[in-house]
Design a binder for these strands. Structure first.
Lengths: 124, 124
DNA sequence: CACAATAGGGATAAATTTCCCCCTATCTGA
DNA sequence: TCAGATAGGGGGAAATTTATCCCTATTGTG
C-alpha cells in the first residue's frame, strides 16, 4: 500500500470533493454501480480500459470513503456486490450534471483535446 | 514539456470532462476567475497552496482547452488577465453543483478523508 | 486433467502530475 | 542601489497514480 506523504488540503467544498472523486475511473465506477452493474467482473466489462487491479483499488477507496458498500456472498465461485450507500446516492445528480455537460459539448471537447495529438488525428 | 505517452480515452461524456478538468487546481482556478480574480498573482493569493509554476501550467492547459482566454496588457510591470470564454462559462453551473455538494457534506467528507490520517486527527 | 470464471493481493515498473529552486526582465518606491 | 511586484519558463526531483505481471483458492465444464 502506498502511504501519502502530503496532507490533503481541505479548504473548501471543491477540495473535499476532489479528495474522494479524484481517480481516473471513479466517476464511471459510481455511475455504473448506480446503473446496476454491481459485481467487479461486470464493472470491468463496462470499463475495459481499467486493469482489474486498479479497479479493485479504486473500489476499496470508494468504500473507505463510504460512497459504496461491499457485500460478500459466501458462495463458490465467489460473489461480491458493490452498492451505493445512501451517501453515495447523493452524488448521482452531481455526476449526472458532469456527464451531461460532457455529452452536450462532445464535439468541441474532442476537438480541443485532440489538438495535442495532431499525428493521431491526421491518421484517421 | 511533458509528452503524453498514452492516448486519452474518449468513450463518454465523463471521459471528456476528465480530460479538461483533471488537474489538482483547475476547478478552483476556474471558479476564482469567474469570481473576478483574473490576474495570476491574484489567483495565487486565493490559492496559496499551488506553486506559481503549476498555476501557470494549469492556466495554459485551460487556455489550450478554450475554457479561458488570456489577455496581455503591454504595460510595465506586466499585466495579464484571464477570463472565462463563453465555453468556459457553461462550466460554472457544473462546478457550482460540485462545490455545493462538497459544502453540504463538509463534515462527513472531512471525517471519511481524515480516517486515513489517524495520527494527525488525534493531535488536534 | 486442463481451463475458465470468480475475487483479490504483492511487487514492481511506468506514466503522470506536482513541487522546488533558480533565472530573465522592467518598473516603482524606499 | 536594493528590494519588491509583475509574468513566465527550464531543469530536475519528488510524489502520486496507474499499469503490468504473477500468485492464491474453489467450483464447474469439456
Amino acid at each position: 500500500m502506498y502511504e501519502r506523504k502530503i496532507l490533503p488540503y481541505l479548504n473548501c467544498g471543491l477540495d473535499l470533493v476532489g479528495e474522494v472523486l479524484y481517480g481516473k475511473w471513479k466517476l464511471r465506477i459510481l455511475w455504473f454501480i448506480n446503473e446496476g452493474h454491481k459485481r467487479p467482473s461486470e464493472l470491468q466489462r463496462k470499463i475495459p480500459d481499467v486493469s482489474r487491479r486498479v479497479l479493485n483499488i479504486q473500489l476499496k477507496e470508494l468504500e473507505e470513503h463510504e460512497l459504496v458498500s461491499r457485500t460478500i456472498y459466501p458462495v463458490m465461485p465467489p460473489k461480491v456486490e458493490y452498492d451505493l450507500t445512501e451517501f453515495g446516492r447523493t452524488l448521482i445528480p452531481v455526476i449526472q450534471t458532469i456527464g451531461l455537460w460532457g455529452d452536450k459539448h462532445e464535439d468541441r471537447l474532442k476537438h480541443v483535446i485532440m489538438k495535442q495529438f495532431p499525428e493521431v488525428v491526421s491518421s484517421l
